[in-house]
């Protein structure tokens, strides 16, 4: 393109009518984006745990005590709920990415629903593995 060419004129972006609460699809979309806030908080909580591990057994015991506080348990429950919702939606959307179908490429050998459910089952199995690792079984 020549240096003097003017940029292509585009209309300014505007939100769809009724966004973000008018339709279930919009609400679902915003809720999915909101998972990032809770998962970030969960990440900070895990980072504090790693820091306590680095500071010694006493700091670790204090960290575990803090986790048992009712407000922290309520927050952990919210983070867990949002992370499960994220996992289900991410894997359900991700099945379309995993297929990666562009143009006249043959369809996937297994149904799309199978890919989504397979991904969710993989996450469930990994979650069990994480629990076994944390609990000292593995």
């Amino acid at each position: 393109m020549s240096e003097n060419a003017s940029p292509t004129p585009v209309a300014p972006a505007r939100p769809p009518s009724g966004f973000p609460l008018a339709h279930a699809r919009y609400r679902n979309y915003v809720l999915f984006a909101l998972t990032s806030v809770f998962m970030f908080v969960g990440g900070v909580g895990l980072l504090l745990g790693v820091r306590a591990l680095g500071q010694g057994p006493e700091a670790w015991a204090q960290y575990l005590d803090a986790l048992g506080h009712p407000a922290v348990l309520a927050l952990s429950l919210a983070v867990f709920g949002f992370s499960v919702y994220f996992t289900l939606r991410w894997m359900w959307i991700g099945r379309k990415i995993m297929v990666g179908r562009v143009g006249p490429v043959p369809g996937p050998p297994i149904p799309m629903a199978g890919l989504g459910l397979g991904g969710i089952a993989l996450c469930f199995a990994t979650g069990i593995g994480v629990l076994l690792l944390l609990g000292g079984v593995l």
Binding site: M39, G42, G45, L46, S76, V79, F80, S83, V84, F86, T87, W90, M91, G94, G119, L122, C123, T126, G127, I128, G129, V130, L131, L134, G135
Partner: peptide, 11 residues
């Protein structure tokens, strides 16, 4: 996140 976070937060 999808693979690991729910298990870590639950555990």
């Amino acid at each position: 996140l999808a693979l690991l976070l729910p298990g870590l937060v639950l555990g």
